[in-house]
Computed example of a mutant assay.
Amino acid sequence: MTLTLTIDTERWREHHRGVLGQYPGLVPVCKGNGYGFGHHRLMRETTRLGTGLAAVGTVQEAARAQDFYPGDLLVLTPYRNGEVSPALSDRTIRVVSSPGHCDGLAGRRVVVELRSSMRRHGITEADLHALRPVMSGWEFEGFSIHLPLNRVGGAGGAEEVASWVRRLREERMPLRQVFVSHLSAEETAGLHAEFPGTRFRLRTGTKLWLGAPKATRYTSRVLDVTRPERGRGLGAGRRQPASGPHLVVVSGGVSHGVGLRAPKTLSGLRDRARHVVGIGHACLDHHLSPFLWDGVRCRFAAPPRLQESVLLVRGGGPPPKVGDEVAAQLRYTITRPDRVVEEPQVPPAASEVR
C-alpha cells in the first residue's frame, strides 16, 4: 500500500541552480509538509545550494531543523510575548511584526516585518517611532515584506517595496537587507539598481521546489480490481451504475492529502461557471479523483478512506491490474507520500501512456 513521489533528481537540482542564478541571495522556504518532499530532504538541498539561510514556518519547525541543517533559520511566524517556545540555537532569527510584542528579544537576531497590501501582519508607518527605542537592543538583521501572490490593480510589487524603502530612508532606519516575496527576477534587479546599498533577498518555496513539474510525479499502487454485481451496493450506500465499471482500489487516502480541498477565490465569469458546474456534479455524487488511468481522471466510487481510495474505471480499454501504478495529480503542499524515490530519470507511468 504505497503512494510514491518520484524525483528526477538531476533535473530537479538543475532547476534549483537556475532559480539561484536568477535571484542572488535567495532564501529557500522549508515549511509545512516540506512542499511534499519533507523537511530533511529540502534542508539537504538548501545546504547543497549554499545559501546559508533557510526560512521555516514555526518555532517547532526551527527546533527540528536546527539538528540537521547547519545554516541560519528564519522563523516566519511573528514573535509574540509570552509564547511557549522550544530551545532554539543562536542561529535562529525571529520576526517582529508589532512594537507591542518585543519582550525578551534583547540580544537576539531579529527581522522586522512590514505591513504590505496583503494586510495580514506587519508594522505600519505609524509604528516606526515606537519601534525605534527597542531596536537598539537587537542584533538587527533587516526588514521583510510579504507581498500578495496575486496582485490585481494598484502598484506593482516592486513599487510597493520601493515605497517602503523610501519611507524607511526618511526615518534613517538601517537598510542593509530587505527580505521580499513574490517578485520576478526583473523586479528584484530593478530594486537593486534603484537602491544599490540594500540587498534584496527573495524568500520562496513554491518557485524553488515546485517550479519544475516535469521533474517530479506522484504514483499510486493498485491494490484490488473488481467488477461489482448488478444490483449490489457500491461503496457506502451507493448504487451500481448501469455501465458496470470496474472498481479499482488504490493507495492514497485522506491521511495522504487525497480529497482535501481549500476555499478558492473566484475571479471572472469562467471561474464562477466552472464552480457552479462542479456543484452540480457534486449533487449527483460525481466527484472527480486526482487519479488517472489511460490518461483520463477517474471518479471516486465513494469518499476517500484513511489510506486508500476506491475509483470507478469505465470500460473502453483494459482495466488496471493489481500491482500496477496509476498517475496521481496531487497538491504538493498538502500531500504526504509513503515514500520518496530519487532517480536519474523519471519514466512515464503506465497510466499516463495511451
Rank of each mutant, 00 (worst) to 15 (best):
T77H: 05
P78D: 03
P78E: 05
P78K: 10
P78V: 09
R80A: 08
R80L: 12
R80Y: 02
P86I: 04
A87F: 09
L88H: 10
L88Q: 10
S89P: 08
S89R: 11
R91C: 01
R91Y: 01
R91M: 01
T92E: 00
I93G: 00
I93Y: 01
I93H: 03
I93L: 12
R94H: 08
V95W: 00
V95F: 00
V95C: 07
V96I: 13
V96W: 00
S97D: 09
P99S: 09
P99Y: 04
G100Q: 12
G100I: 00
H101A: 10
H101G: 00
H101M: 10
D103G: 05
G104V: 06
G104D: 01
L105Y: 00
L105P: 01
A106D: 13
G107N: 07
G107Y: 04
R108I: 02
R109W: 02
R109H: 13
V110W: 02
L114V: 11
R115Q: 14
S116E: 09
S117F: 04
S117M: 11
M118C: 01
M118A: 15
M118F: 13
G122D: 05
G122C: 10
T124D: 13
A126V: 10
L128S: 06
A130G: 03
A130Y: 03
L131K: 08
L131H: 04
P133W: 03
P133Y: 04
P133K: 07
P133E: 03
M135V: 10
M135Y: 00
S136E: 14
G137Y: 07
G137F: 08
G137P: 03
G137K: 12
F140A: 03
F140R: 11
E141Q: 15
G142A: 06
G142D: 01
F143V: 11
F143N: 08
F143T: 10
S144D: 06
I145F: 04
H146G: 05
H146F: 08
H146A: 13
H146Y: 09
H146C: 07
H146Q: 13
H146L: 12
L147M: 14
L147C: 11
L147G: 09
P148N: 11
R151N: 11
R151K: 15
R151I: 15
V152E: 10
V152S: 11
G154T: 12
G156I: 08
G156A: 05
A158H: 04
A158Y: 00
A158N: 05
E159H: 07
E160C: 09
A162R: 00
A162F: 00
S163Q: 14
W164N: 07
W164G: 09
V165Y: 01
R166W: 09
R166T: 14
E171V: 10
E171I: 04
R172Y: 10
M173E: 13
P174C: 07
P174D: 02
Q177E: 15
V178H: 06
V178A: 06
V180P: 04
V180N: 03
V180A: 05
S181C: 11
S181D: 05
H182K: 14
L183Y: 01
S184N: 06
S184Q: 05
S184E: 04
S184P: 08
A185E: 13
A185T: 08
E186T: 14
E186V: 13
E186K: 14
E186F: 04
E186M: 10
E186I: 11
E187S: 09
L191M: 08
H192V: 07
A193D: 12
E194T: 13
E194L: 12
E194S: 14
E194M: 12
F195T: 07
P196G: 02
P196T: 06
T198G: 02
